[in-house]
Amino acid sequence: MSEKLYQIISEVFNIEIGKIDETTSPESLEQWDSFNFYVLLNEIEKEFNIKFDIDETLEIKKIGDFKVLLQKRGIEWK
């Protein structure tokens, strides 16, 4: 599902898909501010029809962390 996830990230942050990888984080991506992060969360929740717990949202420090959370919900990361 990485393709779909990267698609959403690219649309929310308005960047090319090629520039996203698992290490992408607020430090490496200017658009990733606290508000946009919640916009991204909201889009991912809608797209995969899931909800993140509030404590999980605090653990997300880079794109790779979404991988763990999605896998936890049985969404496979190809």
Partner: peptide
């Protein structure tokens, strides 16, 4: 953004 009702869509559109 495909969904023209979503905030992400408006945030991006507002830049152009």
């Amino acid at each position: 953004m495909k969904n023209e009702e979503s905030l992400a869509y408006f945030l991006n559109e507002s830049k152009t």
